[in-house]
Amino acid sequence: MDLDKLRETAAEVAARDDVKYLIGWEKGSYGYRVAPAFAEDADGTADMIFSPLCTANLATYLTLVEKLPLPRGQEPDNRKVALMVKGCDSRAVAQLLVEKGIHRDEVVVIGCPCPGMVDPALLSEKYPETEEIAELKWSDDGFIIVRNGEETAVPREELLAEKCRLCRYPNPVVSDIMLDEPVESWEPAEDEEVTEIEGKEVEGRWDYWQQEFSNCIRCYSCRNVCPLCYCQDCILDRINPSWVFRSVNFSENTAFNIARAFHLAGRCIECGECERVCPANIPLGKINRKLAREVRDKYGFEPGLDPESEPFQASYKPDDPEDFIL
C-alpha cells in the first residue's frame, strides 16, 4: 500500500467540514506496537500507516464513544466519523448498519484492501520485540520486518494470523473511498482447530474448555474490544437480575463465556479482536468460529456482508432446520 496516498486521502477526509475526526493507525510507542490514531484535522494524519501490524479493528470506536449530556443550549456535534477499515473491519461496519447501531450517513468508510495481518504474539515470539520501533511491510510472498534499518524477509505462512488464514473477505465490503486496488482473495484454509474440538468426545470438550475458562480473569476485555458488543447496559453487568455472578470460578466463567459467545451467534464477523486482547490467552476465536460455521452451514447465513439484510437472531425462515427437536 502506498503510504503517501493513504496520508493524502486521510488528510483530505480529515479536513472536510462534515467530518468530526478520522480514525486510523499509527506507529506505537515501542517495538511492534501499533496504536489507533484520532485525527481532527489534516495535521493529525501525517503519521498514519497501514501495515501488517494494524490488527486493531477501528469499528469498535464507532459505538464506544460516550454520548455525554450537553450543557443547555449547546448543540451536539453530529458530524461524521471517518475510519479506515480492513476487510473484516468493514464487515463489522456492515453488521452495525444492519443492526442500526450506526447510520450510513454518520460514517465515512475508507477501505484498505488487506493482504493479511501478522499474528502479533507469533511475531514477537519468533522475532523478539525490542524497545526500538520496528516496521512491517508486505512483500510479494510474505512480510518484511524492518528493525534498526535491517530488513528481514519472512514467508507469509510463518507469521500470518489465524483469522487471516481463514479470511474470505480481505477486501472491504462497505466503503466510500478505496485506498487501493482490491487484493486477490486467497483460498481460505480449513478451520482445523474447530474441527479438532468438534471431533472430541463430550467429556474431552468439557475438560478442554474448563482448562481454558479457568484462566479467565473476567476483565471483559473481549466484550469491550468487540465492535459488535455495544449494549449500553450489558446483561453481564446487571445486578438485578444477576444472570452471571461476578465471582470468578468454573461455573461463572463458563456461563460468562457461553453468554458472550451466544450473543455473537450470527453476528460475529471473525475479526479476532477478542482473542488478540485476551490477557489470559483464551482461544475465544474457536468458539466464535464454531458458531459462525453453524450459522453458515445450517442456515446459509453470513453476517456483515449486506447492510440491507435482516439480523440473524431477529429473523427466521419457516424452513429453518429443526432436526434437533423431539
Binding site: I197, R205, W206, N257, I258, F262, I287, K290, K317, F324
Partner: peptide
C-alpha cells in the same frame, strides 16, 4: 412467530452447549 425465533436461537444454543462439552442429552426442545 415467537417459536420460529426460539427455534433459531435455541438451536444455536444447543450447538454451543454441545461444543463446550455439555452433554447434548441435557438440553431438549419439543
Amino acid at each position: 412467530e415467537g417459536n420460529y425465533f426460539a427455534r433459531r436461537r435455541l438451536g444455536m444454543l444447543k450447538d454451543l452447549l454441545e461444543y463446550v462439552g455439555v452433554d447434548p442429552r441435557r438440553f431438549h426442545m419439543s
